[in-house]
Simulated scan of single mutants.
Amino acid sequence: MKTLSLTIKGVRKLTPDAIEITFEQPGEGALSYQAGQFLTFILNIEGKEYQRSYSICSSPYTGELPKVGIKRVKGGIVSNYLNDHAQEGMVIVSQQPSGRFTPTITPPHAEHYVLWAGGSGITPMMSIIKSVLQANPEGKVSLFYANRDEASIMFYEDLKELQKEHAGRLHITHILEQAPEGWQGLTGLLSPERVQELLRPLLQAGEPISHWMCGPSGMMEQIQKGYDALQLGKELHKEVFTSSTDKSKTDATAGNTQPEISRVIVHFDRETYEFEVPKGRTILDVALDKGIDLPHSCQSGICTTCMGKLKKGKVELEVKDALTEQEIEEGYVLTCVGHPLTEEVEIEID
């Protein structure tokens, strides 16, 4: 799998527990990506290799250098390492940009983009916002951004500047769980009722709208319920940056009967691979351990790089959010979060 060597040009503190990393353009030329995509870093930390995905917060339309936003996570090995050690001149190996959280930006497509973000879910939204404002003269954006408190708002000053520069085209509503005295935004948590209340005036305008959300799974579940109540659930695009549950891989299929060992057959790139997957392991984990370089990126069920079509048997997925309802119905699975539920499984990867 082709990788990039990205050299850090600068590191900016966004909040007490989040940074923005700016990279020099790679030696191969300007980084090619779409608004809303992410980079998957490959880092060796204390002798062990880790892969983690971080959303690009720069825009491919503005001429700015590529940037990512990274928030410290409790127990997060890579995010905490980068927050503590990232510095100018450091080189990070990355996979090519990927991800399907990519709205069509240029006209004559949807001219009103409604974005829901929570915490570090703002990072892909920054790329989308800047891209719409730059590349779609008729486009406008309504951002609803939820955080714990004022100090945790990533890109706070950047958003103020963008709103000032593009008055009338960018509308931002901040929602804080713990608001300071004199706070002018909304307070409390996003509930399905509040989502409907905020969304209705935008719908009544009669404009074509494109709907997107990214944030903690609990917040996104509430937003989804609000959209479902308005019969708009299928129009809402989402980016999942953490697993939708806190279950370990071993417990992910606890409710199902799994064979102790499953025989897995994978057809990929005109080759056929056969290997055994023990109970509790994912298909991709075992394939990589055996030196079989199946396509992959995030390794957490987010990017769909590892997607394949199930031809035989059954597979349980730890995370399904990245797949559309149609893809699930057609039998597509993700090998990075896929556990065989039958003694034999056959998958075809394009």
Rank of each mutant, 00 (worst) to 15 (best):
E20N: 14
E20I: 11
I21H: 00
I21C: 01
I21W: 00
T22L: 12
T22W: 15
T22C: 11
F23Q: 03
E24A: 10
Q25C: 12
Q25N: 08
Q25G: 12
Q25D: 14
P26H: 08
P26E: 13
P26M: 09
G27V: 11
G27A: 14
E28M: 13
E28D: 14
G29C: 10
A30S: 14
L31K: 04
L31C: 06
L31A: 07
L31D: 05
S32N: 09
S32Y: 07
Y33F: 15
Y33H: 04
Y33A: 01
Y33Q: 01
Q34I: 01
Q34W: 04
A35R: 06
A35E: 09
A35G: 15
G36M: 13
G36K: 04
G36H: 07
G36N: 14
G36Q: 05
Q37R: 12
Q37C: 03
Q37S: 05
F38E: 01
F38L: 06
F38T: 00
F38G: 04
L39F: 03
L39T: 01
L39G: 01
F41Y: 05
I42Y: 10
I42V: 12
L43P: 04
L43K: 05
N44H: 15
N44I: 07
N44Q: 12
I45L: 08
E46Y: 06
E46G: 10
E46T: 10
G47Q: 11
G47R: 09
K48C: 08
K48A: 06
E49A: 13
E49H: 05
Q51M: 15
R52Q: 10
R52I: 06
R52V: 07
R52C: 12
R52N: 08
S53D: 02
S53N: 06
Y54T: 05
Y54A: 01
Y54E: 13
Y54D: 08
Y54K: 10
S55F: 01
I56L: 13
C57K: 08
S58H: 06
S58L: 10
S58C: 07
S59Q: 15
S59P: 01
S59A: 15
P60A: 11
P60Q: 14
P60Y: 13
P60W: 09
P60R: 11
Y61K: 09
Y61T: 05
Y61D: 11
Y61L: 06
T62C: 05
T62S: 09
G63R: 12
G63D: 04
E64Y: 07
E64K: 08
E64Q: 14
E64V: 12
P66G: 08
P66M: 02
P66N: 06
P66K: 04
P66L: 04
K67F: 00
V68W: 00
V68Y: 02
I70S: 03
I70T: 02
K71G: 09
K71Y: 05
K71F: 05
R72S: 13
R72L: 07
V73G: 14
V73E: 14
V73T: 13
K74F: 06
K74Y: 11
K74Q: 11
K74H: 11
K74M: 05
G75D: 10
G75P: 03
G76D: 12
G76H: 15
I77G: 04
V78F: 08
S79T: 10
S79Y: 06
